[in-house]
Write a protein that binds this DNA or RNA. Structure first.
Length: 571
RNA sequence: GCCCCCGUAGCUCAGUGGAUAGAGCGCAGCCCUCCGGAGGCUGAAGCACAGGUUCGAGUCCUGUCGGGGGCACCA
């Protein structure tokens, strides 16, 4: 299906070239031509402001330029008119018959509606969630989950072959803490007198889930692990936790293709090879404090054994970073650089990484590391997600996995629905903080935009149930009978391709969420106004309108599926 | 102190350097003898402040003020 802004832009470009060939416009380099629907319907269906931009290089006033462009504008089947307006806008109107014919095009394309070719033959990877399996997913992570999965869906729609990846750290301190916590719960479940660490002990995971695991483990293994250290407990808890996380994600339609664990970077020696490469490039030095440290830091670190520092300041960092601690173990940074090297080596054309706002600095350091190794970081795109605050009873509810007082994604789904959770977490720009008002999401779920959007689809489904009961079919319908109301919806429907393109290339999945709402709010008045099966409507018109609702249903379903939401047949 | 994000309607947020800045919730009214009410229509109400760039700024730049987050030999 055509992307109309590109089609219009091509016409204008041809017109400018033609005018230049005729000497009506001077020769200049033609800029990227932006076409978009104007804010007001009476300004046409698409508009172009290029004449204003060209005023200086062309040495003419915008209106004259626009008129010249118009004079040279080639014919196009989708256009009915083009006109020059005040300062120099060129406003286009779509041809109504062409628009009506799009009903059939939409139905034919079906679930592949606006399947684009931007990423044709290219492979993309989206890494998201990537939470360590130390507890159930909480709302903070969930936002990245919805954003990441929706970006993946949009990239697929843009033509990419997409892999969803989950990176987790099963080598670090947190996982050892998990093992220790599990071990304590296991001993507790056995009836051994163990001291349960207090709430302020940040090395202990207080969640109820570990108690459950412990009871299961006692059932499975009895007291045979009584004398073991944390390791088998970590293995057990990790495995169980992942089952839970995967199950939770599946509830909201998310499935990763690859689970990549940090351990494998140690097993393959990639971590140490990365260190070696950095050392070979002269990027590493050994010292007890960083070079250029302040007196205060120097004093504080003077008794430290030497650590290995990455001279990231060479690449623009404000200070150097430790990559190997004085005890010889690497910080998170080193395996993370190794991981990104691994990603780049896997040959993806596009690497999208969804991170929480607390990872900005870390990611910068990784990037400096890759640059130090002379790698091209241009395929990597990082999407920083701002925090989610849970609002309950008008109060801000701070979330932390380790406090035990967590609001999990599962809880949230239980209290609302997978579709509601997906939509609310998606319908916000990643740059904005998101206040998730739990009371509102639960109490007012009947007035939720999610239902408003889905109801548009449900209404189509209802019409077809009724049509079937009455024996009315849309086979062989004559879409030329469709009226202005239906045309309004079709115009909006044809913007879907532009939204997919924009959202996929800019990694802004919230755009599809807002579009979905706009599309629904275009639909509902029409549904009120355009009766398909009413007794007063002639049969041929009934068929044509049914055909229209068939197309509307296709568009609505496509939009819902791009957001990973269901398209229910009934409410 | 330094770094990142945000300041748009009473609240929560959209808005790609273009024309008269949009939605949801809330508020004030109105509409269902419909195949289909988790619906439709109308109204009140807004770009934090000050400079700058530009033919044109909510959008870009600088500063001020306000809110959130980050500044470990944690991950």
């Amino acid at each position: 299906m055509k992307l109309l802004p590109h089609e219009h832009a091509r016409l204008i470009e041809q017109a400018i070239r033609s005018a230049q060939a005729d000497g009506e416009l001077p020769v200049f380099e033609i800029p990227a031509i932006e076409i978009r629907p104007p804010k007001k319907a009476d300004q046409g269906d698409y508009a172009c402001a290029v004449a204003m931009q060209l005023s200086k290089v062309a040495g003419k006033n915008p209106s004259d330029i626009a008129s010249i462009i118009l004079k040279h504008l080639p014919q196009a089947d989708f256009l009915s008119s083009a006109e020059v307006v005040k300062p120099g806008f060129i406003n286009f109107r779509l041809n109504d018959n062409w628009l009506r014919a799009q009903v059939e095009t939409i139905i034919n394309e079906g679930e592949a509606l606006f399947q684009l070719e931007i990423g044709k033959g290219k492979r993309a990877q989206v890494e998201f969630v990537s939470a360590n399996p130390t507890g159930p997913l909480h709302i903070g992570r969930s936002r990245g989950a919805m954003v990441g999965d929706t970006i993946a869906r949009l990239l697929e729609a843009a033509g990419y072959t997409v892999e969803r990846e989950y990176y987790f750290n099963n080598a670090g301190v947190q996982m050892a803490n998990l093992g220790n916590s599990m071990r304590i719960r296991y001993l507790e479940a056995l009836g051994v007198a163990v001291e349960i660490p207090g709430k302020d002990d940040k090395t202990f995971y207080h969640g109820e889930y570990l108690k459950d695991f412990a009871r299961n483990l006692v059932t499975e293994q009895g007291d045979s692990l009584k004398a073991d250290d944390w390791k088998p407990f970590k293995e057990y808890a990790e495995k169980r936790m992942f089952e839970i996380i995967k199950t939770t994600l599946k509830r909201v339609n998310i499935q990763h293709d690859v689970f990549f664990n940090e351990n494998s970077l140690y097993e393959s020696e990639a971590v140490w090879e990365t260190l070696k490469k950095l050392e070979d490039g002269g990027n590493i030095y050994s010292a007890n404090v960083r070079e250029n440290a302040s007196d205060e830091e120097r004093e504080k670190g003077k008794n430290n054994a030497p650590a290995k520092w990455f001279r990231s300041s060479t690449y623009g960092d404000k200070e150097d970073r430790v990559v190997v601690k004085s005890d010889g173990s690497p910080t998170y940074t080193l395996p993370d650089i190794a991981y990104h090297i691994n990603k780049l080596e896997r040959g993806f054309d596009l690497l999208v990484n969804i991170l929480g706002a607390d990872h900005i600095v870390e990611h910068q350091v990784v990037k400096y590391g890759l640059q130090a190794l002379g790698l091209d970081t241009s395929p990597i795109h990082v999407i920083i997600i701002q925090f989610v605050r849970l609002i309950r009873g008008g109060e801000i509810d701070k979330m932390s996995t380790r406090s035990g007082n967590i609001e999990t994604l599962d809880d949230l789904i239980d209290q609302t629905s997978p579709d509601v959770v997906r939509y609310i977490l998606l319908a916000r720009s990643a740059d904005s903080h998101l206040d998730f008002d739990l009371d509102l999401a639960v109490k007012q779920s009947n007035e939720n935009p999610v239902y408003y959007i889905q109801n548009a689809y449900v209404r189509c489904a209802g019409i077809f149930r009724e049509a079937e009961a009455r024996g009315v079919s849309d086979e062989g319908a004559d879409v030329s009978k469709l009226g202005n109301a239906e045309l309004r919806f079709l115009r909006k429907a044809l913007e879907l391709g532009d939204i997919i393109e924009l959202a996929a290339t800019q990694f802004e999945p919230h755009r599809i969420a807002f579009y979905a709402h706009e599309l629904a709010s275009t639909f509902h008045p029409i549904y009120d106004e355009v009766r398909a099966l009413h007794g007063d409507v002639p049969l041929e018109l009934q068929k044509a309108r049914l055909r229209f609702y068939r197309a509307a249903q296709v568009v609505l379903k496509r939009v819902l599926s791009l957001m990973g939401m269901s398209a229910p047949e009934r409410m």
